[in-house]
């Protein structure tokens, strides 16, 4: 409770500072609108169907991206983590693909996917798949031999050992990977939307507001929405992790 109060105080102080700077005349309000204006504009936008559709477009794309990402990376990670031969075979390929910034692929994807959201979803997956994949591979390799031996001493079959020992062991690591993937996916989605506004979404809203009309209040309002969404994702997933995966507070990192 006290921490919440402190956090809120910090945010309010920051907003007050922004307001003061915005109104001080250091920069024209046109370029740097004070929070009061931004929030007023945001309230107005939230009542507008077009804006809400943009928000919905981003949220939906994010859900789809993360879903595809999980469906690809978790099974692949389990497989690669369990079969060393396979892992060795694809390591070089992964090491080549991973450092390619997904934003660099935007022109290619734009050409192929035109205005459909498939392109940005592909790029978000491309960027987000790595932390999840690596966390899963790592976690499988980390299963304690002693745990497996204990299970073996109780005559637990190989299949049951996978199901009852390896999978539960991997869960916290996968969850951390999923959290990292979730923020990465959002960042990439908004970036692609800005660079390719025809796909819609908050990113394109921000881009259009800044380029055509030069509405900085709308730009900041859109940014605020994206930021709040990102915050909620992370806080929600961290909370879920604390609540359900109590045995492994750390859960590993990428």
């Amino acid at each position: 409770m006290r921490n919440t109060a402190r956090a809120l105080t910090g945010i309010l102080a920051f907003l007050a500072l922004c307001e003061a700077v915005g109104r001080s005349g250091l920069a024209p309000q046109y370029y740097l609108p004070p929070p009061s204006l931004v929030l007023t504009e945001l309230t107005r936008l939230l009542g507008q169907g077009d804006f809400l559709l943009d928000v919905l477009a981003t949220v939906l794309s994010w859900v789809i991206s993360l879903g595809i990402c999980a469906l690809v990376a978790i099974p692949a990670g389990l497989l690669l983590g369990s079969v060393p031969l396979l892992r060795t075979a694809v390591t070089a390929l992964i090491e080549f693909l991973r450092p390619v910034p997904s934003v660099a692929l935007i022109p290619l994807v734009v050409v192929i996917s035109a205005g459909s959201p498939a392109g940005k979803i592909f790029l978000a997956c491309y960027a987000a798949v790595w932390p999840l994949l690596f966390n899963t591979i790592y976690a499988v390799g980390q299963v304690d031999e002693q745990l497996l031996e204990s299970a073996r001493a109780f005559r637990v079959s190989r299949a049951q050992r996978l199901l009852r020992i390896k999978i539960p062991h991997v869960v916290p690591f996968v969850f951390t990977g999923l959290r990292l993937a979730a923020s990465t996916a959002l960042i990439v989605l908004v970036s692609v939307e800005m660079l390719n506004p025809s796909t819609g979404g908050i990113g394109s809203f921000i881009y259009v507001a800044s380029s055509g009309a030069g509405r900085m209040d709308q730009v900041l309002a859109g940014t605020l929405v994206a930021g709040v969404f990102g915050y909620l994702i992370n806080a929600g997933m961290a909370g879920a992790q604390r609540r359900w995966i109590t045995w492994a507070p750390a859960g590993g990192t990428a």
Binding site: D144, Q146, L147, E149, S150, A151, A153, F154, R155, V156, S157, Q160, R164, I165, P168, H169, V171, W247, A248
Partner: peptide, 27 residues
């Protein structure tokens, strides 16, 4: 049945105490 030295690495952390004790009975 086997009891190992390293309890920290032979009990299943995601199972309750009862879950751990019941584990071999399940198989």
């Amino acid at each position: 049945a086997v009891v190992f030295q390293d309890y920290g690495r032979s009990l299943f952390p995601w199972m309750s105490v009862r879950g751990n004790v019941e584990f071999p009975l399940r198989s």
